[in-house]
Design a protein around this nucleic acid. Structure first.
Lengths: 200, 200
DNA sequence: CGAAGATACGGACCGCTGGTCCGTTTTGCA
DNA sequence: TGCAAAACGGACCAGCGGTCCGTATCTTCG
């Protein structure tokens, strides 16, 4: 079979792609509701025609996914090959809370983007590639904890506690401070794991 | 001050309202994705003009809310004044799992409707009246359990495990049987409460 | 360096949706 | 039975995601 050459993109295309991602990022960050930022807005802010958006990312959800994935990259790296307590080689009972805290912090730092992703029209968030990844990772760690059955469901349930709109509701609407939210999630996680509650 | 007379609606209006609710209910149940059923569809199915929809319910989310509330009515009654284990007067450690099981069953029985509600364009599900109600109820019961702090967050987290799209993902997409899902939620709930796991 | 082919561009354009307007019909009351 | 008030319905509108195609830009090769 042909080795699919995968010729690298033209340089104006690459530049435009970056411009679009940057513009979208800023617009989503600035606007309160993800639905308030339209594709035309993004194109205009990037100084680009609308067709360029769709040629480069397929459709709206494609663009949001790409943006999310780019922002997520560092966290993913830290989880897959970083040092403890996030990286591999951490004892499960310590890694699970670390993973969830990382997810929570990410959503706090990228509230609007996460919100945009999870309410991105077509398809539930549960079919997105990154959710699958997070779930698999978490499930694998949970499986190493003796006496904890149903790791698959438990992983879903724990991740559900960090849903973007819940985070937005607590942090944004109810003004719950960041550290307090993190602490509450930590306590909750500990309870699920049956471990003694963290200090404090 | 005038006693606001609240003159009762004309009978054709009442009849149309029912027709619309019935039609919407059936359409949402029949179609896979809530977005696939448009307001025009509902109006046509009810044998009514589009304006009647908007006059009666304000906008799309208003209609969905009304429908949801109507379907929810029996469950709400059972919780507020029904017999144990759902109603008041049940020991907290037994009532919490009963409440969550009721929520789960409701979402299983009304998957598409719940999905429509939670992905209803404007506003997160956390601002809807019924969520507020469920959360308050659950929180109140959790508060009666000694040694369990953060009842507010715990209530949110537990309810998050019954999110409509998660339920849809597990029951619909992954074909997890109803009883199995209920059992898993029960085990998970027990773990959060720190109580011995239910039999089985 | 210049020309030709490939690639990407952009904004006018389309279909469809939620939501509104207003002339017409139905209802309730005297 | 007559008349005002209330509700009707479907043509209508604005705005969205997404597409099309003539044009401009890049790359490559002689």
């Amino acid at each position: 079979m042909e080795p699919v050459a995968e010729r690298r993109p033209r340089k104006d295309a690459a530049r435009n792609r970056e411009a679009v991602l940057a513009a979208a990022d800023e617009l989503f960050a600035r606007c309160e509701s993800p639905e308030a930022v339209t594709m035309a807005d993004i194109a205009a802010a990037a100084g680009v025609g609308k067709a360029t958006l769709f040629r480069g990312f397929g459709d709206r959800t494609g663009l949001i996914h790409a943006l999310y994935e780019a922002r997520l990259e560092p966290v993913r790296g830290a989880i897959e090959e970083g040092p403890p307590p996030l990286g591999p080689g951490t004892p499960p009972m310590r890694r699970v809370p670390a993973l969830l805290d990382a997810v929570l912090c990410f959503k706090l730092d990228n509230r609007h983007l996460a919100l945009a992703l999870e309410s991105a029209g077509t398809g539930s968030p549960y079919q997105a590639a990154h959710y699958e990844r997070w779930h698999r990772t978490l499930q694998a760690v949970l499986e190493q904890i003796a006496g904890l059955d149903e790791p698959a469901f438990t992983a879903h349930a724990l991740l559900a506690a960090t849903r973007a709109d819940l985070v937005e509701h607590l942090a944004g609407h109810e003004r719950l401070p960041r550290e307090q939210l993190r602490a509450q999630l930590a306590v909750y996680t500990a309870r699920v794991l049956g471990s003694p509650v963290p200090q404090g």
